[in-house]
């Protein structure tokens, strides 16, 4: 348990042990939220004195709020991740005391959901964390594959020629992490390969940009055909979260320390069917545990089916950086 006066180091250790032991959100989150209220004055004011006892009691910060307010237990964070959104003004921010829990939580759940992923041979089409350390996706991919070869640049988009050459030269099973829009850009360029058996295509980011949309199934079918890859996994992650959900064919699965539930968009009351998704992520121990997204979905046990963006919500996600880099907005 986490007492309200617990030290930062002890809480980090507790959360790390909890994640390593596949502990549930219900077992830790309410106490962790009360600790955050005391440690983060701004979050305490946001909670207005509410003392959460249940997971769904924990006051959720809407993602738009985090464009204006930083919730972090320290004024000197070890990492700050930011949402894309350079053309829409303010960017959401996620400041972490350190990335130790983030890295461990991400790795453990990735390995559980995508076993034997050949990360030692990685061709990356996502933002490179060396160039943009504030990209949470770039950080995650780099932490899984420190020796990756990157073919994406925020200013120029996908280096399609270089990527196709690298893919054609792959002799070992390869991991290809990409956003949906970067994948579409790759497939618009000429090229076709048959990746070695055991290769994995990872697709993340939304399929809807600010001004254009992708047909998800058509894109994935085209990718399978042009890349000769059988194993396709989808990742759902957010800058504001430390944990990710993975879909290997039967819906997105959340790790045990991440609780997902749906609420009525207007009343914020929990609902059974389609609702606005909220996350309570124990790995967000040093920032803000409970996040309210603008994504709709249905939660069935530990699986989540996404149902698109709330109508009227601005487009967001990692794919946007590709849209911005490549001028998709004018297409």
């Amino acid at each position: 348990m986490v007492g309200s006066a617990e030290s930062v180091a002890r809480v980090e250790r507790t959360v790390l042990d909890h994640v390593r032991g596949s502990g549930t959100a219900a077992a830790l989150a309410p106490a962790l939220a009360r600790w955050q209220q005391r440690r983060i004055p701004a979050y305490g004011r946001f909670c207005a004195g509410l003392e959460p006892r249940e997971l769904t009691d924990i006051p959720s910060a809407p993602v738009a709020l985090l464009k204006h307010v930083r919730f972090c237990i320290t004024t000197q964070p070890g990492a700050v991740f930011r949402t894309s959104g350079t053309t829409s003004g303010a960017r959401g921010e996620h400041a972490l005391a350190s990335t130790r829990v983030y890295d461990e939580a991400a790795r453990l759940w990735f390995e559980a959901c995508v076993p034997d992923c050949p990360t030692e041979h990685t061709i990356s089409l996502v933002t490179d964390s060396d160039q943009h350390p504030d990209s949470s996706l770039g950080h995650m991919v780099s932490s899984f594959a420190p020796d990756k070869r990157s073919f994406f640049d925020l200013a120029r988009g996908v280096d399609t020629r270089g990527a196709w050459q690298a893919l054609a030269g792959a002799t070992e099973p390869t991991w290809l992490p990409t956003t949906a829009f970067a994948l579409a850009e790759l497939l618009r360029a000429p090229g076709s390969v048959r990746l070695p058996a055991g290769s994995v295509l990872m697709v993340t980011g939304g399929f809807k940009g600010r001004s254009s949309s992708l047909d998800e199934q058509a894109l994935l079918d085209a990718a399978r055909g042009r890349l000769g890859v059988e194993r396709v996994v989808r990742e759902y992650g957010m800058t504001e979260l430390s944990s990710q959900l993975w879909d290997t064919g039967r819906g997105y699965r959340a790790p045990p320390w991440l609780h997902v539930y749906a609420v009525d968009p207007v009343t914020a009351e929990p609902v059974e069917g389609v609702g606005l998704l909220r996350f309570v992520d124990c790995a967000n121990w040093s920032s803000c545990l409970a996040i309210e997204t603008e994504d709709l979905g249905v939660v069935c046990g530990d699986r989540v089916d996404l149902a698109g963006r709330l109508k009227g919500a601005p487009a967001r996600g990692c794919s946007l950086s590709v849209e911005e880099a490549t001028g998709w907005t004018s297409g």
Binding site: R45, F46, P62, V266, E292, K311
Partner: peptide
């Protein structure tokens, strides 16, 4: 009636006020 898209915007504004002002 309230449009569903209003909900998160409402909670963002009131949340901001609790943090930075008063609500």
């Amino acid at each position: 009636e309230v449009d569903p898209a209003i909900g998160p915007r409402w909670r963002t504004r009131t949340g901001l006020a609790r943090v930075l002002g008063a609500s």
